[in-house]
Design a protein around this nucleic acid. Structure first.
Length: 225
DNA sequence: GCGACAG
DNA sequence: ATCTTGTCGC
C-alpha cells in the first residue's frame, strides 16, 4: 500500500540541513484529541547490524493487543546516529516497512521521543507530520527535560518539563525498573498517550507494540547473518 | 568551559 | 543501537 506523505522532503541531508528541516516542520505538529479510541495500534522499532538496518512494525488490536499483522524492511544505514537527529536515521526505513502493511493502523507508538526533544521534533513528531496520523513516543531514556522523582509504584507518573513547558511524562510500568519517557508525536494529547501506554503494558517494562516490534527487528536482524 | 546526549 | 555470561532477586 503506497503511503500518502504530507510535507515530504529529501533524506540525504547534512546534519545542519536536518536541523533546519526540524525547525521548519516542528510548527506543523498538532497536539489534539484522538478522533476515536484506536482499534489498532502499531509498534515500530529498528535494529542495526553491519551497516544494515531492519525496521520492524507490528500491528496489534486494541485493547486486546493481539497480533494482526507485521512487516520488515531491510536496507543500508544512510545516516549516522546523532542525538537529536534520530528521525533522519530511522524514519526512512520505518516508512518503507509501514508501506508494506495491508491495513494501516489507527495510531503508531514509536521507541523514541516526540515533543520531548530539543527542537520539539523527535522521531514520533516527524513520522506523525509526514503521515498526518496519530503518533506518540515511548522512550527508554531521556533526551532532554527535567522531572521530579517518580513514585516506585507501577502506574505512577510525573510531568517532564523544559523550563515551564510540559513536554512529556515520565512513567513507571513496572516495579524496580527504569521509567519510560512518553511524549506526543502528532494528533494525540499527552494524557491520551500516557493512558494508551499504560493500557498496552502487559507485565513488562515496555508496552506491547514497542516490545514486540523490538523483538521482531532483533529476530530479523539475527536471521540475516 | 563543562556536562548531557532518543537509538 | 551494539558488544556479551553469569548472576542476584522477585
Amino acid at each position: 500500500m503506497a503511503l500518502l506523505l504530507h510535507h515530504a522532503h529529501a533524506w540525504d541531508v547534512t546534519p545542519a540541513q536536518a536541523v533546519a528541516l526540524q525547525r521548519t516542520l516542528a510548527p506543523l505538529v498538532r497536539e489534539e484529541p484522538l478522533v476515536q479510541t484506536p482499534r489498532t495500534i502499531a509498534g515500530v522499532d529498528m535494529s542495526v547490524r553491519e551497516d544494515q538496518v531492519q525496521a520492524a512494525v507490528v500491528v496489534l488490536s486494541f485493547p486486546d493487543l493481539l497480533l494482526i499483522e507485521q512487516a520488515i524492511w531491510r536496507g543500508p544505514v544512510e545516516f549516522p546516529y546523532v542525538p537529536g537527529l534520530l528521525s533522519f536515521r530511522e524514519a526512512p526505513a520505518v516508512l518503507r516497512a509501514l508501506e508494506q502493511l495491508q491495513v494501516q493502523p489507527d495510531v503508531l507508538m514509536t521507541d523514541s521521543q516526540g515533543r520531548a526533544h530539543p527542537r520539539r521534533f523527535g522521531l514520533a513528531c516527524h513520522l506523525g507530520v509526514l503521515l498526518d496520523r496519530p503518533v506518540w513516543g515511548v522512550a527508554k531514556s531521556k533526551l532532554t527535560g527535567v522531572h521530579a522523582e517518580l513514585p516506585a509504584e507501577p502506574g505512577g507518573q510525573v510531568p517532564l518539563y523544559s523550563g515551564k513547558e510540559e513536554i512529556g511524562a515520565v512513567l513507571r510500568t513496572r516495579v524496580r525498573t527504569n521509567p519510560l519517557y512518553v511524549s506526543v508525536g502528532h494528533r494525540i494529547t499527552l494524557p491520551e498517550a500516557v493512558a494508551l501506554t499504560f493500557a498496552c503494558a502487559k507485565g513488562y517494562r515496555l508496552p506491547e507494540p514497542t516490545r514486540q516490534a523490538h523483538l521482531l527487528s532483533k529476530k530479523q536482524n539475527e536471521q540475516s547473518g
